[in-house]
Nucleic acid binder design. Structure first.
Lengths: 207, 207
DNA sequence: CAAATGTTGGTAACAGTGTTACCGTACAGA
DNA sequence: TCTGTACGGTAACACTGTTACCAACATTTG
């Protein structure tokens, strides 16, 4: 065996262990919430020492960032699964529904990603870039709506930003328990359609 | 001295101590953020033992709830300071500005009140009622707008809810660092005016 | 081939957190 | 004066994230 073989095997092993730890952390996050994300708990469930988390992730901060990125990856998958529609506005409306669906399906992830559920954590600059990339999916659909003349009156980024703010605000208050599910759904629809309405063409405003 | 005198003096003393501790906690929250809110730190700064916090507040949970209520009291004061305007819609717009102003002036309080910045804390039912009461100020102004015919198309609670969702979403993302102050202000105005627009009378929509 | 080097990971400790058992102290009532 | 009760300070407990120490290992060097 040459010298590289061992290093390679070791690194591959580390990749596997890293994935296993991340999987354990994901399980804990989903099943027991952000409070269960302690270094001892995760390492214990994964069957290793706490030290491994520090060598592989650099501490709880790094592990949380990995979870954060995992959350955005799942979110992106969810948004990419929205079927293409020749009418960009229909696709945008579907994306809006998907935003809330994801938050309700993965509330723990959403809390970690957007509500700072892990106390000391703030994502690094490159991690924030990844978040921006996920968000750009929304901008792209809005951009298509503008090109197709289904929306007008502001730039794609402006409309996407206010939509994001509205969706996040509604979902955030719902997750915080200020609205029950049925009421939150009605309010979410009313809010999002209201936000969109001023940017629709006049004959479209009946919706 | 009758027996009640001592008890009364003791209770009054406790009220004073309680206020002093709450004041210390407020100072720590505003100056150093939610992370500085530890029982030892607060009791140390206040010059007493940790035990006092447990007898007067019942633990960190109770102290956090007291801070939470304090935040809503300040918020309510801020909203009540919005000058009366014969045009309810003008007053509503002023209230909308005040919402963001408060969040930017007291970001630590806002994080505790609406973003769960103190890890284990969830407000009790009576505390949530107080929050609702503060929120009813917004409903009342919207109600006036409906009565005066400045808004239409939905109930007062519906419009107030979606407005709250929008304001909270924008402020929340701004406080989380996704937008710088100038951009956040533009987006906030665009979002809130967009949300209101579908409920305005047709001749008012030019704004 | 043997010794030095560097990395990994387990153990145990450190400082910090919220919380509470223990105990002395002060008062009210008998 | 004696008993009972509530308060509050000290010290401990079970946690948290983090790291110094050390043994084990493969690689590199003499």
């Amino acid at each position: 065996m040459s010298s590289t073989t061992y290093r390679q095997a070791q690194q591959e092993g580390q990749v596997v262990v890293r994935a296993a730890i991340l999987d354990t952390a994901t399980h804990l996050l989903i099943n027991e919430g952000p409070a269960a994300l302690t270094v001892r708990r995760i390492s214990g469930e994964a069957g290793c020492s706490t030290k491994v988390i520090y060598t592989l992730f650099g501490g709880k901060e790094g592990l949380t960032e990995a979870l954060w990125l995992e959350g955005f990856a799942r979110f992106e998958q969810r948004l990419l699964a929205v079927p293409f529609d020749p009418d960009a506005l229909t696709e945008l409306r579907a994306g809006i529904e998907t935003y809330r669906d994801y938050a309700l399906e993965q509330p723990a992830y959403y809390r970690v990603m957007f509500q700072g559920a892990v106390p000391g954590f703030t994502p690094s600059r490159p991690a924030q870039e990844v978040a921006r990339r996920t968000f750009s999916l929304l901008v792209a659909v809005v951009s298509r709506c503008l090109e197709e003349g289904r929306l007008r009156g502001a730039t794609d980024v402006e409309i996407a930003d206010v939509l994001w703010m509205a969706m996040h605000g509604a979902v955030s208050l719902e997750l915080s328990g200020y609205f029950d599910r049925a009421e939150a759904e009605r309010r979410y629809r009313l809010l999002c359609s209201s936000v969109l309405k001023p940017f629709l063409t006049p004959d479209e405003r009946t919706t």
